[in-house]
Amino acid sequence: MEKPNLEYLDALAGTDQAFRDRIIDILKSELHTERSAYQKALADENWNVARGFAHKLKHKIGILGMQAGHRLAARHEEALRQEDVSLSADFEAILEQLETFLQTLRV
């Protein structure tokens, strides 16, 4: 099963630990906020808003190296356009995985 990783961010940061810490801090905060907003929009059946947040979250899935997850997020985003929530559970599982992963990182 695909796991999140820091390959992209580590390559970007090089030896700059301050940048690495800062971007992880931003990702933690953004992921939490956007995930909550996405869940609320989904519960409210506000598909457009949910799709917007799915789009933002897709970016973070890509940054954290989950390529299959990124593809699923893209399909989910497109499905939401048709009010199709069949991929919601899989998408939610990826978000949970990401949030858990980020929490394990010390900044």
Binding site: I23, E30, H59
Partner: peptide, 14 residues
Amino acid sequence: DDQASARAIIRRLC
């Protein structure tokens, strides 16, 4: 960019 993470990464690249 409306996402702080994206801005931080692009700034790093710049």
